[in-house]
């Protein structure tokens, strides 16, 4: 059955059609058993709903209402003070959030500072007895090689070791820097790769040594960036000038 006919049947059953419309619809559906069944159901429904209109007596009293209003109704209504500046919270919160967001983004996208390392022609580490590099006890004796630095003595701090008075005196536990060869030179680290039983200090230990000790360098300063070069894949490096008057790590 179409919805439109059904709606009309419902209106007919609930007495919402004019007498003319009702008579016309009754004529139309008199040969339609489905429509007649629906009409009958709607009429039953109407009668049943009318019978539901009986309700039991309420046991309500003014006293009960008064009590309820006294306990609940006379509570002061939540009113906003006229001078309320609550609207300020919204822009203030937005500003604060924006600031935090900017700060966070800044931290995330902050470009790492370029590292200062010694270039290939760094003259010497210029270590003296007054600025010994501390090397752990389990660090075996070897040769620390600087690119162009003259032999440099690094004093270890093992318990029984005496610090040499003379720089020319070579102790077995002393690390010595030697002249590098061009073929073995690692441009990225600026140090020689291992050769024989010599020990090459890693870049990290070299840098940390450079930080802990006040070193006077006489070569150029090379800034090595974290960004890789597209062609070579190595870190980009920029020579920024002479380091003869620069105190590294000072």
């Amino acid at each position: 059955m179409k919805g439109k006919i059904e709606d009309k049947l419902a209106k007919l059953a609930f007495g919402e059609l004019s007498p003319e419309e009702a008579a016309k619809l009754e004529r139309e559906v008199q040969n339609d058993p489905e429509a007649l069944r629906a009409l009958s159901l709607y009429k039953d429904m109407r009668a049943g709903l009318k019978s539901l209109s009986d309700v039991p007596e309420d046991q309500f009293s003014k006293e009960r209402l008064r009590d309820a209003i006294l306990t609940q109704g006379l509570k002061p209504l939540p009113t906003r003070p006229i001078s309320s500046r609550s609207w300020l919270w919204m822009p203030a919160t937005a500003c604060a959030m924006g600031f935090v967001l900017m700060f966070t983004l800044n931290l995330t996208h902050k470009k790492p500072l370029p590292q200062v390392v010694m270039g290939p022609e760094v003259a010497s580490l210029g270590l003296s007895n007054s600025h010994p590099i501390e090397i752990p006890k389990n660090f075996s004796t070897g040769t620390l090689i600087g690119p162009t630095a003259p032999p440099t003595t690094v004093a270890t701090t093992t318990g029984d070791a005496k610090q040499p008075d003379d720089m020319d005196e070579v102790d077995p536990r002393v690390l010595t820097s030697m002249e590098p060869t061009d073929a073995a030179y690692d441009p990225d680290l600026g140090v020689q790769p291992p050769k024989g039983n010599t020990l090459t200090a890693s870049r990290t230990s070299l840098l940390s040594s450079a930080r802990t000790a006040s070193l006077k360098t006489s070569g150029s300063i090379v800034l090595i960036d974290q960004d890789k070069d597209e062609q070579t894949g190595a870190c980009k490096a920029t020579e920024v000038g002479s380091s003869s008057n620069v105190l590294v790590g000072g």
């Binding site: 709606d7 419902a10 209106k11 159901l41 709607y42 429904m45």
Partner: peptide, 8 residues
């Protein structure tokens, strides 16, 4: 109308 149809 809709409610009556639903009830039916």
């Amino acid at each position: 109308l809709r409610a009556r149809r639903a009830l039916k």
